[in-house]
């Protein structure tokens, strides 16, 4: 990066460190922080959407849909995350390739399963093996978002289902007295009021999601924990910047990052809770009302 970095072996002290901290590999480490943040910001709303859908399905009056909603949160919550990440992602990837194979190569005469091998025609590969590495990375990232969303959506479904049932019956009864339909009651009365009951559960999920991002490495995405381990490991002189085992320092940096992230989240969630409490038929809402008087 700097002009004096061309021959690292001659450098010492702060200059050596400044060169070391700006190598391509370190840059990849810094970039992986953005990957993790992006994953969190994309996954959280998608998971919430899955959860909302799941909770709505679980409340449905249509029996198969109710079974689907209840089954979704029961099954996914029961499967260990790591098993889900190993099995489901491979199944999803192979399923997509299988469908593309059937569409794009109708006259392929070889079997897809050959012993242990999963072989589809080259045009059906997802992504194509000729596509550049970033396409593979984006694909892996999308798979990660979908998988995280399904897993955390199942938990969110249960939280939201509980929150929907926690809205006081009197509120619903009033809506009915005004002649609102079931749909109107749901969207105008139930949904706006349920968030305050859902928030503690959802904020737990968010905190767990923050810490679950190292599972990304199972999907081949190089996240911050991967890079911290890789960069922190002892380096012999096969590398331009040899150093002893520095994993402690790298993991300390990660700890600072994660603690900062949870602190920022706590502050944000605290404000959100205050805002949602406003005008609610809860103790918190009552307290806000009397304080304002």
């Amino acid at each position: 990066m700097f002009s004096y970095c061309s021959d690292p072996h001659t450098l010492e002290g702060a200059r050596w460190l400044s060169c070391y901290l700006t190598t391509g590999k370190q840059m990849a480490f810094y970039a992986s922080f953005a990957t993790v943040l992006a994953l969190l910001l994309v996954t959280a709303p998608v998971a919430l959407l899955f959860g909302f859908g799941g909770a709505m399905a679980a409340r449905s009056h249509f029996l198969p849909l109710r079974w689907f909603g209840r089954g979704y949160s029961a099954i996914v919550r029961g499967v260990p995350d790591i098993a889900f990440f190993l099995f489901f992602v491979i199944a999803l990837d192979q399923g997509l390739e299988y469908i593309r194979h059937k569409i794009k190569c109708p006259d392929w005469d070889q079997p897809i399963r050959q012993g242990n091998d999963f072989v589809v025609c080259p045009q059906a590969k997802l992504p194509l093996s000729s596509s550049p590495q970033w396409v593979h990375e984006v694909y892996g990232f999308s798979l990660a978002v979908v998988t995280f969303a399904i897993v955390f959506g199942a938990f969110a479904a249960n939280v939201l289902y509980g929150a929907m049932r926690a809205v006081p019956r009197a509120q619903i009864e009033t809506a009915e007295a005004y002649g609102m339909t079931r749909r109107q009651t749901f969207w105008r009365i139930l949904v706006p009021q349920m968030w305050i009951y859902a928030l503690p559960g959802l904020s737990n999920l968010w905190m767990i999601l923050i810490k679950a991002t190292p599972l990304l490495f199972l999907l081949g995405i190089e996240d911050i924990v991967y890079w911290a381990r890789e960069l922190g490991g002892m380096k012999t002189s096969a590398f331009a910047y040899p150093h002893p085992d520095w994993r402690l320092w790298y993991f300390l940096a990660l700890m600072v990052f994660y603690l900062t992230l949870t602190r920022v989240s706590e502050v944000f969630l605290g404000r959100l809770a205050a805002r949602l409490t406003h005008g609610q038929a809860t103790i918190g809402g009552e307290r806000l009302r009397t304080a304002a008087r």
Binding site: G24, E230, G233, A238, A240
Partner: peptide, 13 residues
Amino acid sequence: GAYPPYNFVNDNG
């Protein structure tokens, strides 16, 4: 990418 000198990720990543 983690078994020098067989294979490793160098400082350029």
